[in-house]
Design a protein around this nucleic acid. Sequence first.
DNA 1: ACCTGAACACCGTTCAAGT
DNA 2: ACCTGAACACCGTTCAAGT
Lengths: 210, 210
Amino acid sequence: MPSLSPARPARKRPGRYHHGDLRQSLLHAAVRTIDRQGVEALTLRAVGAALGVSRTALYRHFADKDTLLAAVAAEGFRTLHAALVGAWNEAGRGLAGLRAQGHAYVTFGTTHPSHYRVMFGGYVTRAEKGSDLDVAGQAAFMALLDALVDLQQHGLFRRDDPMMQARYVWGTVHGITMLLMAGKMGPEPPSADALAEYTVDRLIGALRRV
Amino acid sequence: MPSLSPARPARKRPGRYHHGDLRQSLLHAAVRTIDRQGVEALTLRAVGAALGVSRTALYRHFADKDTLLAAVAAEGFRTLHAALVGAWNEAGRGLAGLRAQGHAYVTFGTTHPSHYRVMFGGYVTRAEKGSDLDVAGQAAFMALLDALVDLQQHGLFRRDDPMMQARYVWGTVHGITMLLMAGKMGPEPPSADALAEYTVDRLIGALRRV
DNA sequence: ACCTGAACACCGTTCAAGT
DNA sequence: ACCTGAACACCGTTCAAGT
């Protein structure tokens, strides 16, 4: 599982010419900046400066700012995917597995709000089909879809179109997570856990075999 | 119901000194630009130019760009509020009323994607309590909350915390709307109406009195 | 291959000055 | 009260040049 709050990436030693693994360092530096100051505040100049590298060095590794953000989003989806698969298996699959996925999803969002906003905030405008980002996003979605199919096959969930079920569940946890992060859950918002608990309860009620 | 796609706002007559209702015109010009080119592409310079006015004239009416966007978001919430109240009443309240609200919500988002993104995309960073934006957002939320309380009182919905129910329902339709708008509903996404229909069906199933 | 520094075409915002 | 024009401190991106 890729780390989302990496240790400080190495600065270039002033004398040396090559940085080393600049691409990976650029990614980490961008993530750090976003985590601390938000997506809007991210400037390529600051990223370069944090690594002791010129502001144009980045263009050797990313076509532009959008591509850098796409890489951040892809990393986020990979981490989310790992969290969902882990939750499902560690909870022993079944209804408990889906509950665990629901909690894992909300927790991922609230503990990595900046990553989450890059993933879903529309900052990445060109998500080409087959791209790293596209593949990572699909994989995360599949972790949920697989769980729902499993529940259907065990006769626990209603047997309608699994894709439609997955869209519904994903939309629900996504919306809850977004509103919670945006502070739009009212003046005295419930905790992330309480909200996730209520959400999972209702979701299961909505999809249970009748 | 305030219009979200206003007619072209009047340009200043070159000779004249005063523009007239500049504040309203600025707002309309901003909305037009956002609808056509997205939030990222909105520049104060372009807004001024569209009205035949200097780019700093805006600062007489809005403290800064953030305040302008907050006004756009507030206008969006007022329109959404009107749509939700209208849907509820025109459908004759009850379960049909809630179904209509669900459709109205998704329709509002998909037909005004740019507005929707300003409202929920985190572009407005300072939503002060008691501000125009805050009040408009609360009012829209109340339209949903009122509907749920009504359904509870008629014995149709389970009698748990109405606020929690409202958060859940809002989160669900919000998430569905966002993912649909962002093109994250898969390679062959269902129509907005089909998605809204499925969503409303499941929501009612989740909240029905047992 | 990889990095640099100057340059270009943009931004939001401030401010003294005009009417 | 309302608007202007120049100026300031920023951006992302390009490109010829260096190692």
